[in-house]
Design a binder for these strands. Sequence first.
RNA 1: GCGGGCGUAGCUCAGUGGUAGAGCAUCACGUUGCCAACGUGAGGGUCGAGGGUUCAAGUCCCUUCGCCCGCUCCA
Length: 528
Amino acid sequence: MSNSAPSTPSPAPAGSPSRSMDAIMALCKRRGFVFQASDIYGGINGFWDYGPLGAQLKKNLRDAWWQDMILNPCWGRRGPGGQRVVNVPLETCIIQHPKVWEASGHVGGFNDPMVDCKETKGRYRYDHVMVFVPESGDPGDKPVFAYVGDQPTEAKQKKKAEKTFGAIKSVALSSLPQPWTRVIGPDAEKPGTLTEPRMFNLMFDTIPGAIRDEANKAYLRPETAQGVFLHFKNVVDSTRVKIPFGIGNTGRSFRNEVTPRNFTFRSREFEQAELEFFCHPDESRDWYVFWRDFRMDWWKAIGLAGENLILREHDKDELSHYSVGTSDVEYRFPFTAPGFGELEGIAHRGNYDLTQHQTHSKVKLDYFDTTRGETLPNGGKKGERYMPHCIEPAAGLDRGALALICEGYTVDPSRPSPEFLKLHPRVAPIKAAVFPLMDKDGMPEVADRLTDELFAKFGRYGFIESDAKQSIGKRYARMDEAGCPYCFTVDGDSLKDQTVTVRDRDTGQQQRLGIGQVSGFLGEKLGL
RNA sequence: GCGGGCGUAGCUCAGUGGUAGAGCAUCACGUUGCCAACGUGAGGGUCGAGGGUUCAAGUCCCUUCGCCCGCUCCA
């Protein structure tokens, strides 16, 4: 825990009533972190908007990612070979050529009606499933045998069907009336295990161009990663980067989730921050470990330092067929407790994506590495041509913002303002507040001058608030709830000795500080 | 997609067929000189939406939208 002061109880454990999602969602709405999209029309399932504080919180999170991944990668931490880590940014469109998603595998797997087998957990394209039935067409009370053409199941099921019926014929599953209580799935033993066909529209589609023509259908991207692979060659040719290096891409992605659930956690429109890091196949495992460890450290550094954060290595059977390894940075959200929910996946993608796009686009995407190969008489290298491997740390910014809010949300009944948000100063949307203790006797003027100074120095990083109304306790409480880390208060003594009090959000404790020291104090606390 | 719960002021909720309410919050004025203080006052509602029954609907019925929980799904 970040706070070790004995007077401060540790945050309520995940899943306890005092850290309930209801309370967190209520605070999010009350203080303007998150609103439901199209609220006044009754909302729209799976879409959430950010209010003033939430928009700034998420921007701070995005900026932190950009700073620590692109501008000063890994805080200067050296790569596995002792080299400086080099990453460059890219910003690609939400809509790309439809073939991109065929190459990536997103179209083939998810755009057709599928039937699932409850027994084997197999999934089949509805229009590919055929069934062996007796020549007469009427099986009586006997089961019929489903199969998928050109697959091992065909011969197996044909044999069984012939044994049962003798003369058989083949019909489409779609020609049989539902429910298919008598159909034995391709790999199943018992009849009646196939579900009704279901559409899995993972991707939203749209039709660019003035004239609606289904032939022009395009998709809203389900991930930002593919935009990077498409420009791998352009980046190499235009920036003098040498492998190993990474390309970062942030932006909105869209997935037509079957069940949007859990506040902003599973939204249909969401923002990703993804890095595709390209390296030689032989070094890919080391880089995978490097990125996995750094990304975990990064989330800790912006405030998820508690036991609610874990790094989970995927089991072998969870991995995609092309992946050497995948880890998730996972957070114990109130709605997943005692389990965890994914914040970021760090995947070793091998050379799958570049290879796929090379095949589909017929454009060479391999890399000529002039630092490898045998040494030539002139001292240079002969070079080596290879398809780079890729490590992909892919973070969800909305999930990150939600985790920051959940982690920061604290209830301490012993405080005058029990409910408060312990946001790390780097991501807190409000960086500081300035209050005149009373709205008279020269205090507002001093407060105004200090406010101006803080705006000039820190306004570019977040909000600087000032408030002269109502009791001081109420103003502190408001700032606590909004996650503002420090409040500076001008009182009667300020006029005499040029000092103010600074109040720490997490402890409620105050100390006196010269007005001239305030900027230095705040800059240090904000890590600037 | 299936099952269950919920939807009344910004928030938490009361209101079981008969004039829409309370507390907190917000705003103003006054008091108060460091922790959601006190006093006085103000603003804020087509009771999620649409339809129906009824002399009369927040309340009963139907439909629909949204949120929450469980299952399902999540190469």
